Simulated assay, not measured.
Amino acid sequence: MSHPTSTARFPVYALLASLLLLGACQHNPLQHAPQATQRLTEERPHGCDGEDCPLVNIDTLHFADESQLDRLIDERLRRMTLNAPDARLPESLQAYQTKFLRDAEPGWASYLQAKVREQHGDITVIELSSYLYTGGAHGMPGRGFINYDSARDRELRLEDLLIPGQEGNFWRAARQAHQRWLTQNDQAQNSDFREQWPFQQTAHIALLKDSVLLKYDVYSIAPYSSGHPELFIPHAQLQGILKPEYL
C-alpha cells in the first residue's frame, strides 16, 4: 500500500481546519435552546510525533440537559466509523480511537465531528461529519444529520415531518431543487452529466428554520470533486407537504 506524502496529507488537515471553522461560525444557539459544550480529542500513537504518524481526531458535543441527544450523537458517530460490510460497531469512541491507532499504518487518519448546524424553536439540528484516510489519492468523507426536538425529547425523521401521504410530493419538490442546483452549477444543459449523475433520494435531511436541506454523499449525484452537494427546498414550496408545526 502506498503511503501519502506531506503534500497528499495536506487536504486532510485543510479539511479539518475548514470543518472546525465552519462549526465555530454556525454554533450560535438561541437562548432557550439546549446549550452544548465541545469535547475535542486528538491522539497519535504514544511517542510518535512525525507528520506520517497515524491520527484520530474526535470533535463532539455534550448537552448537559439532553442525555438522549448525547446518546444519539455518540451512537451516530460510532456508526460513521464502519467502513466495511463486516465491520463491528465500536463499543465507544475511545475504543475506536484505541483500535484505529493500534492497527493504523503510517499516514492513516480518522476525523469525526458533531456540530450544531442550526437551532430554532425546540429544534436542534446536529450535522455529523467523518473523514477516513487509509492511503491512496484521497480519503472518504461522510455526512449525516440529527433533527432533535427537545420538547418531545426525540429525533425527528422525515416521516415525522411530512403530512401522511405527502412523501411523493416531497421528493418531487426535491427534484425541482436538484434542477435548480444543476442550473447554479452550469450543468442543466449538460446531458452527459445528468445521465451519469441522475437525481437520487438521500437519507441526510435537515429541518432548517426556513427550508429543508438535503445533503448528498460524494459520488451520489456528482463526482468526488463536487464534495457533498446540498439541495434546499424553501418552506414556501412545502405548504401542504410538511406538517404546519414544522413550517
Rank of each mutant, 00 (worst) to 15 (best):
D49V: 07
P234R: 03
N57P: 00
P106M: 13
E91H: 07
L213W: 03
L16G: 02
W197K: 05
A151C: 09
R88A: 13
N147D: 08
A137G: 06
L214K: 01
Y224W: 11
E66W: 03
E51K: 12
T7L: 13
D186Q: 13
L238S: 10
T202R: 06
Y216N: 04
T41A: 11
P198I: 05
Q201C: 06
A104T: 13
G227P: 00
D52E: 13
G168E: 14
Q179Y: 05
P244H: 09
S226Y: 13
Y246C: 07
L82D: 06
Q239T: 15
A203V: 06
H62G: 05
L214R: 01
D192P: 02
I146D: 12
D149A: 08
G142W: 08
R154T: 02
P223Q: 06
H228R: 03
H138F: 12
A151L: 13
I233K: 01
V116G: 00
I205F: 05
G121S: 09
S2H: 06
D74N: 14
L213F: 03
A114E: 04
H235Y: 09
V12I: 12
R78I: 04
Y246K: 08
S211Y: 07
V218G: 03
G47V: 02
Q31I: 14
Q176N: 10
L161P: 09
A177V: 02
